[in-house]
Design a protein around this nucleic acid. Sequence first.
DNA 1: TTGTATGCGTTATCAG
DNA 2: CTGATAACGCATACAA
Lengths: 353, 353
Amino acid sequence: MTVAPMATPTEARPPGGPAGGHVPTLAEVARAAGVSMKTASRVINGERYVTAETRDKVLKAAGELGFVPNALASALARGMTSHSISLITGDLSNPFYAAIATGVENELRGHDIHLTLASSGEDDRREVALIEEFALRRSRAILLVSTVEDHSGLETIQRRGIPIVFLDRAPSGLVADSFVIDNSGGTRAAIEQLISFGHRRIGYIGDYKRIQTHQTRFGAYTAAMLAAGLDWESFAVRDAHNPDAAESLARELLASADPPTALFAANNRATVGCLRAVKDHRCPVALIGFDDFELADVLGVTTVANDPVALGRAAARKVLDTPVAALAAPTGSTTVIPTTLVRRGSGEIPSAD
Amino acid sequence: MTVAPMATPTEARPPGGPAGGHVPTLAEVARAAGVSMKTASRVINGERYVTAETRDKVLKAAGELGFVPNALASALARGMTSHSISLITGDLSNPFYAAIATGVENELRGHDIHLTLASSGEDDRREVALIEEFALRRSRAILLVSTVEDHSGLETIQRRGIPIVFLDRAPSGLVADSFVIDNSGGTRAAIEQLISFGHRRIGYIGDYKRIQTHQTRFGAYTAAMLAAGLDWESFAVRDAHNPDAAESLARELLASADPPTALFAANNRATVGCLRAVKDHRCPVALIGFDDFELADVLGVTTVANDPVALGRAAARKVLDTPVAALAAPTGSTTVIPTTLVRRGSGEIPSAD
DNA sequence: TTGTATGCGTTATCAG
DNA sequence: CTGATAACGCATACAA
């Protein structure tokens, strides 16, 4: 398929138009067409009550001049309803976040709203700066996968009329809508299954404590272990923020005097690291990872699957469906995305003990 | 599944600020501070030539009123240098595109420029519509992973002063800068290695013909096969746009009367499909995939690695470093990102013949 | 159905 | 150093 030229004909330069990169204004179009600004505006915006004749006149002039409406000026004049919503995630190269972004982007299609994306790199200060920035740019809403622990400072933003929706991690110290994964349910299911397969020493490889989802997952892990009367303190590792860290921490754990017979990787980054660590370990180690991933089936990895794309979609839909007024006064609702334990083998290895 | 709301709303109004969600304007701040608009503007923008005293006065007023500058109005008044560049890719859930986006986003940090993202879904018409859209919104530049075959229609956009930079796929029928992967070099290296391992029937699993990178990769494949006097016509499959399609096509190929002993997967999507197909195939099949991926080491998959993050970074840097005037009159330069054959085993399986 | 005049929130031009 | 006033490009009561 070829790109169809738009309004303007295929000539090299707009015939009557100025040669330089000057973009004509609506006023110029109106003058060229011999009509008033308002009429030109009507035609350009496809409003009714314009004679076919005048419409043609205006369109012709617009075409010849190479007119392009100025979205900024338009937004300003009509009271600035922004045409973009912002998404702030930790790191786009993490497939989980990429999936969320995909969901948001998909949902936005056909709504004349675009996605502005930025990643905080899990850096508190950068996150705050980004929020400030997007608020300044009058984002219609800010979707936030937050790293910050206390969100009370964001109330200012809400009061400015810019809704903040929390993704993956709920707000604390702030009333705002959120969309999260069923972290405790998913973790519990995984740990309980490992226990049911006879494991008594189950390692936990998780991300920074301060990350909320990991607090929850860790809590569910310890609870499940305690409920089964098992010790966890010597098997939990909590600073595996990337695959490399996860790998070395997992290796350490497996090399200890009394190594775990099973591992629970608390997110997709940890899972990658654990897979590398387990790969060339002398005895088989059971493994369940939180978050599904594309090649899990090929590798036979049991995962706590969830649907980050759905999460993104749901959050975006919320923003699209709710009138701004209501969004600005959020109810603090929480939507939980369920998880499923997908058994592919690695989580069904019985304990060697 | 929506779950119960959490906390009760904290009451809260700003201490001295106005009650409604009204965002004060610069004029109001100026009036409150008892200075002119221009002076207030000076203070807010941190310009020089303001007494410390008046500065404090203005800042105090701004603080009390909860002033937030309006970026749109500002942009309009100062001649509209947009603060965002746009990236259009095929599908963000493809890690290759996510990596490109990551690179772009990383490079943009600290430049007061944000990334607006959209995916075309490899749909020609949507791509064109998006470009139109972003041009309308006065994007500072458009980074494009294009699906369209002929780009001559985009000249209009360039003439409007909006630079278009091509990522991963070069433009045709248009002069524009581009950043691409060394498709033929990478493919050739892979095929030649397979041949050197004794393979004579080498399957090719590629994406739609119309996608430029795949034309190039396919061309390199056939060239290498021909150079070695090998037949390829019965081993090439070219419509594997997603892992599922790739898998079934690969299975078909492997189930044929005279099946290939090696497969070349022409991108990361095809590789995933091929891995699934090869996994439970009765005899071992050599496999090399174009594009590296995270778990390639765990799976022992040989890949034609390249650096999409670097590609994104390079393109973004180009836009940031080049003055708009120069960008609008592009030289049509092409930057090629090199590839490396990363040997991990799957590509070093000798032919069984 | 069409036009006039004015405003959106900032910045820029000069003259004080 | 500071301030009135005119842009910026478009939309929109209100008239005609």
